[in-house]
């Protein structure tokens, strides 16, 4: 090892006292969360608790909502990504995102993967990169003969893996997944989960899910969010997944995972 991956900070990314507002409404309050590198961290909780809001603040996707703003710090390599001198475009290139519904571009499979790399200034062999990314996303064997075909012709599960491959092609450090399986059938879901496991050897993955079994199956760490009395989302408990699901410390977590709430 010639260089430490995280010279300034041991965590992949870290939220410090984060509040997120939509206009005057505080959607999420006082979140402190440290994400372990090369692990899968699941964020679970009842709907409306701000899971999606939180995951979107990791790569400044919330910037696209005009009324949204954020207090607190999000440290990435020791740098607060919400500092005024930080370029959100660069943040998103390093922290990729996979969305709830598969959203391939209405272009060919090949172009879907090549485009992100190209706009980010990739100069290498594009064919290799496409193949490599598709292999990593466990999609290569299914599409290698139809690379020029429209991505919209793929099944939902394939589309979602294509979206993952597309994200991999720009070489991010962290991959955010916002309920990536909610639009997929159980078999496609299983494939994505296997893939996540595979990818977690190289990438830090943060996944939002409303599916507790999925969190229990697929994640290393789990953060449980819920809604406070003022309807703002709060983080109740965070720990290794096995501990959260077997020995939750908080009564609210226990209620949720045993199905008494939510």
């Amino acid at each position: 090892m010639t260089e430490t991956p995280f010279p300034n900070n041991a965590y992949a990314i870290e939220l410090r006292n984060v509040d997120i507002f939509y206009g005057n409404f505080r959607a999420v309050k006082d979140i402190n969360l440290q994400i372990e590198p090369r692990k899968i961290t699941a964020i679970i909780g009842p709907s409306g608790c701000g899971k999606s809001t939180v995951i979107r603040c990791f790569n400044r996707m919330n910037d696209l909502v005009p009324s949204a703003h954020l207090n607190g710090e999000i440290l990435f390599h020791g740098k607060n990504i919400y500092d005024p001198d930080v370029d959100p475009v660069q943040v998103r290139r390093l922290i990729g995102m996979v969305f709830q519904k598969p959203n391939p571009f209405p272009k060919s499979i090949y172009e879907n993967i090549a485009w992100g790399a190209r706009v980010n200034g990739y100069r290498g062999n594009m064919d290799d990169l496409v193949e490599q990314s598709l292999r990593q996303a466990a999609l290569w064997d299914e599409v290698k003969d139809t690379l020029k075909k429209s991505a919209l012709a793929l099944s939902g599960g394939q589309q979602q893996r294509l979206c993952i491959a597309r994200t991999l092609a720009v070489r991010p450090e962290i991959i955010l997944m916002d309920e990536p399986c909610s639009a997929l059938d159980p078999i496609a879901t299983l494939k994505i989960e296997d893939l996540m496991r595979e990818l977690s050897t190289q990438y830090t993955i943060i996944i939002v899910t409303h599916n507790m079994q999925q969190a229990a199956r697929a994640s290393d760490f789990t953060a449980f969010f819920t809604m406070d009395t003022d309807r703002a989302g709060i983080m109740v408990e965070y720990g290794p997944t096995s501990q959260i699901f077997t020995r939750p410390k908080d009564k609210r977590t226990e209620d949720y995972i045993t199905g008494r709430f939510g």
């Binding site: 090892m1 260089e3 991956p5 995280f6 010279p7 300034n8 990435f76 390599h77 020791g78 740098k79 990504i81 001198d85 930080v86 370029d87 660069q90 943040v91 390093l94 490599q132 990593q136 070489r171 991010p172 450090e173 050897t201 190289q202």
Partner: peptide
């Protein structure tokens, strides 16, 4: 770091700059 892994270099931090 795997051979494919091109990320995670300290140079990136400066890259975040606008």
């Amino acid at each position: 770091i795997s051979p494919f892994d091109v990320h995670a270099s300290s140079a990136l931090i400066a890259n975040l700059r606008k």
